[in-house]
Design a protein around this nucleic acid. Structure first.
Lengths: 191, 191
DNA sequence: CGGTTTGTTCAAATTTTCTTGAACAGACGT
DNA sequence: ACGTCTGTTCAAGAAAATTTGAACAAACCG
C-alpha cells in the first residue's frame, strides 16, 4: 500500500518522538509570521532553529520541515537578511550551519524600524502630496466645488495627523519607550 | 486614437479636479490596509467615503474607483461587518447610502480586539499544546533525547511567555491604557 | 585539475487569491 | 402582479504568489 496516509505514517515512524511538538510550535509561529506579512516558511524555519540546541544545516532543515532545498535557501536567506538567523561555520565542516537569533524583542524592534516605520512614512508623504494637490486646484474652483475641496482638505489633514502620530508611536516602540495609545485618540479630536 | 493612455486621458477630463487628490489618499490608505492584512479595496473605499461630505451609493463608489459593482459589494460588505462603514437610508431614496465611520481610533481598537487578540491567543494555545506533548513523550525517552526534549521545553515556554505578554499588551492597547514594550523584553530574560 | 558536495538562481508549473460578468433575489412603484 | 432598479452570490477567468526541479556557480578534496 502506498497511499498518502501510509507514506505519512512511514514518515512518522522514522521521526524522533518530539518532532510532532516541534512542528506544532513551528506552524504556530509560521501563522504569526504569515499574518505579519512574511513568508510562512520563515517563521517555521526560525522556530526549528530556535528549538535546536545545536546549529543546523539546510539539509536537516529541509528534512525536518519537508521542504525542497530551494525553498529552504530562499526563506533562510531572507531570515539572514532580517538578522533573524545567523550563519555559523563549525570547524572542520564544509556545510553552512545556521542558528536562530534568539532575542525576539530585538527582532521585533528591527522589523518595526525597517519596515513599519517606512510604511507609515510613505503613507504620510502621500497624504501630504494629496493636500498640496488640493491647494493647487482650490483657486481654479468656486462655490460648491471649493467647499467640497475644503472638506476634503480638513479630512486629509486629519489622516495626516493620525499617520504622523502613528509614526511617533512606532519610534517610541523601537526605542523601547512607553507608548500611550490615547495619543492616537487625541490626534483626531474634532477641530 | 484609442490607446489605454488616451482612454485614461478622456477619463481624467470627465472627472472633477479634486479626483486626483482623492485617489492618492485612497491608494495610500489602501496600501496601509493591505499591509495590515485587509483587502486593498477596503482601504480605498473607506477613504473615498471618509473624504465625502455626503453619504455615497455603490454606483458612485464604483465610478470613482473604477471597480465592478461586485467588487464594491464584496469589500463594502466586509467594511460594514468591521463597523468601518455604515449603511444609511436617505428619505425618498431607494438606493443604499454609505458613510465612513470616522473615528479611526475606535476602528483600530475593534480590529485589535477581534483579530489580533484572537491570533495571538491561538498561537499561545498551540505552544501550550506543544508543551503538553513534550511532557507526554519525555518519559519514554532517556539520555540524549531527554536532554533534547528538556531544551525544547524551555524554549517553547519562552515563546509561550512572549505570546502571553503580547496578549496582555494588546489588551492594554484595546483598553487605551499605556503600554510598556519593555515587558516583552523582560518576558524573555534568561532564566 | 577533475570530481563532489553544497548553495543559489531561474523559469516553468502549480496553487492560491482576486476580479469579473452573469445569474439570482429582494424591494419598490405602478 | 409585473417590470424595473439594486444589491449579492457564484463560478469561471485572470493575475499573483509560491514551489519546485534543474541548471549554474563556488568551494573543497584528493
Amino acid at each position: 500500500m502506498s497511499t498518502a496516509a501510509a507514506k505519512q505514517q512511514e514518515l512518522n515512524d522514522s521521526q524522533p518522538l518530539w518532532r510532532e511538538a516541534e512542528l506544532r510550535a513551528a506552524d504556530a509561529m509560521g501563522q504569526l509570521m504569515e499574518f505579519w506579512g512574511f513568508r510562512r516558511h520563515m517563521g517555521r524555519l526560525w522556530t526549528v532553529l530556535y528549538l535546536s540546541p545545536a546549529p543546523m544545516t539546510t539539509a536537516e532543515l529541509s528534512e525536518t520541515l519537508q521542504l525542497s532545498s530551494s525553498a529552504v535557501s530562499l526563506s533562510l536567506g531572507e531570515l539572514v537578511r532580517w538578522g533573524a538567523v545567523r550563519k555559523t561555520w563549525l570547524p572542520g565542516e564544509r556545510k553552512d550551519f545556521y542558528r536562530a537569533e534568539s532575542n525576539v524583542w530585538k527582532l521585533l524592534r528591527r522589523v518595526y524600524e525597517r519596515r513599519e516605520l517606512n510604511l507609515v512614512k510613505e503613507a504620510s508623504d502621500a497624504f501630504l502630496d494629496a493636500q498640496r494637490f488640493l491647494d493647487e486646484v482650490r483657486n481654479q474652483l468656486g462655490g460648491r466645488d471649493r467647499q467640497r475641496v475644503d472638506y476634503m482638505r480638513k479630512r486629509i489633514s486629519r489622516l495626516s495627523a493620525l499617520t504622523k502620530t502613528g509614526e511617533r508611536l512606532v519610534r517610541l516602540l523601537v526605542a523601547g519607550r512607553v507608548l500611550n495609545p490615547a495619543d492616537l485618540q487625541s490626534a483626531e479630536e474634532e477641530d
